Computed example of a mutant assay.
Amino acid sequence: MHAVVFAYHDVGVNCLKALLNAGIQVDLVVTHQDDPNENVWFGSVAKLCEEKNIPCITSSASKLNDLIPKLQALSPDYIFSFYYRHMIPAQILACAKIAALNMHGSLLPKYRGRAPVNWAILNGESETGATLHIMEAKPDAGDIVGQVAVTIGADETATEVFGKVSQAAVKVIEAVLPSLIAGKVPRKPNELKKGSYFGGRKPADGQIHWNQTAAQVHNLVRAVAPPYPGAFTEYAGKTMIVAKTSLNQPIPEHLNLGVCGIQVVDNQVFGICGDRQVVEILEWFPASK
């Protein structure tokens, strides 16, 4: 079986390795150039391709259609997308003789769209996962090919959960590869009405609003904790990144629960929230650092 792979991030690295280990012939990999303004804390698809001597190119979203003649000439059995960040045009998907498949970091149909792990934590979910699905013009809308769930701990950060999702993605691809190699694509309906679509997140979305509940603040901190841009608040004229919070620490009796915002008592830092509950800030630092 021959494949063309669009890939980035840890999921891209790990799933590409799974294809190679299964004997899939990867004729071309399309990846992204690392953004100099982004904290790149994950594995490199380009480096893996260099090590494995796999042809690897980058392309802007506006020039993906320029790849169509090349892909038509390669005539791959499958096209895979593993955490590739651009929407792949339908004309490219049509170049796959059997199917074009995408790995998404949620339990579809839940959390279609961007930043699914971050959104799941932000919304206080206790479970997410990885889903391999048929690619269509509409994002994350095709039939489900395989799926593995993972738990989300009450204090786990997006990076920790993403590590679980990355491992789940490998389990999904390894489970379905025998069928794919046989030319058979298992599929079940992706019932979109039972899920929802979420857009991308920006650093500015990390601002803490202390009128929210303590659980909401804690979930925001977990969802965007470094190496993501981080939740932030103003204190003493400075913008502070709040990197770690707890809902379970003992609360001093003399906190003023009637005033939302930061209070420092005996060198401990607390955030008073809109539900008159408290988060203790265990780690924070100036945004300038």
Rank of each mutant, 00 (worst) to 15 (best):
A154M: 11
H133K: 02
T245K: 03
A141C: 11
S126D: 08
A154R: 02
N219W: 07
I241H: 04
N190P: 01
Q25P: 13
I92Y: 13
V165R: 04
A182P: 06
Y83M: 07
W41I: 03
R201W: 15
S75V: 06
W284Q: 14
A204W: 12
T58C: 14
V221P: 12
P76A: 08
G261W: 01
A7H: 01
F42I: 10
I98A: 06
T128L: 02
L282Q: 14
P109N: 03
S126T: 10
H2Q: 14
T31H: 05
G124I: 01
N39W: 15
P89S: 05
A243T: 07
V150G: 00
P89I: 02
Q167T: 08
V30C: 12
I134M: 06
L64P: 14
V265Y: 14
K202E: 15
Q25T: 13
A168M: 11
V176P: 10
V165A: 02
K289N: 10
A141S: 13
T239N: 07
P69G: 08
G200F: 00
P178C: 12
C260M: 10
L74N: 06
G153V: 13
G271Q: 06
K244L: 15
S126L: 06
A182K: 02
A223S: 15
Q277P: 05
V176R: 09
V29Q: 02
C260L: 07
Y235A: 14
G163Y: 11
L177H: 01
